[in-house]
Amino acid sequence: MDKELRQRLDQRLEQLENRVALLERNLDLVAAGQRRTSLRSLWRRPPMWTFEQYPPRLLNFNAFKPAPAIPANAPRIAMVTPSYNHGQYLGATIDSIVSQAYPNLYYHVQDGASIDGTIDLLRSCGDGLSWKSEPDKGQSSAINLGFAGVDCEIMAYLNSDDILLPGTLAYVANYFVSHPDVDIVYGNRIFIDREGLEVGRAVLPRHDGKALQYADYIPQETMFWRKRVWDRIGPIDENFHFALDWDFILRAQAAGFKFVRLPRFLSCFRIHDAQKTAATYAVGAREMGILRQRVLGFEPTHMQIRRAIAPYLVQQVAYHYGYKLGLLRY
Rank of each mutant, 00 (worst) to 15 (best):
I218M: 00
A113P: 06
V30E: 07
F265K: 06
D162P: 06
S160N: 12
I271Y: 02
Q139E: 09
D120C: 04
T81C: 02
H108C: 14
Q220M: 15
L90P: 00
Y214M: 09
N159R: 00
A78S: 12
K132M: 15
D245L: 03
T222E: 06
S140L: 03
S99T: 06
P46I: 14
V203N: 05
L266P: 01
R8H: 09
S178L: 08
K65Y: 11
S141P: 00
Q88V: 14
G187P: 04
S83K: 03
P103R: 11
G87M: 11
D95K: 05
K132I: 15
S160T: 12
N85L: 13
E153N: 01
I163R: 08
A252N: 08
G284H: 05
R261P: 00
H86N: 13
R25Q: 14
D237E: 01
Y107W: 04
L105W: 05
N26A: 13
P46N: 05
F259V: 10
Q11Y: 08
R44D: 13
Q139R: 08
A274D: 10
R19Y: 10
W246E: 11
L129Q: 03
M79A: 07
I154W: 01
R6I: 15
I192A: 02
S38I: 15
R329W: 06
S96Q: 08
L327P: 00
L59A: 13
R40E: 14
Q110G: 03
I70P: 04
R6Y: 10
I233K: 07
N62D: 10
D193Q: 10
A156W: 03
L121I: 14
S99D: 09
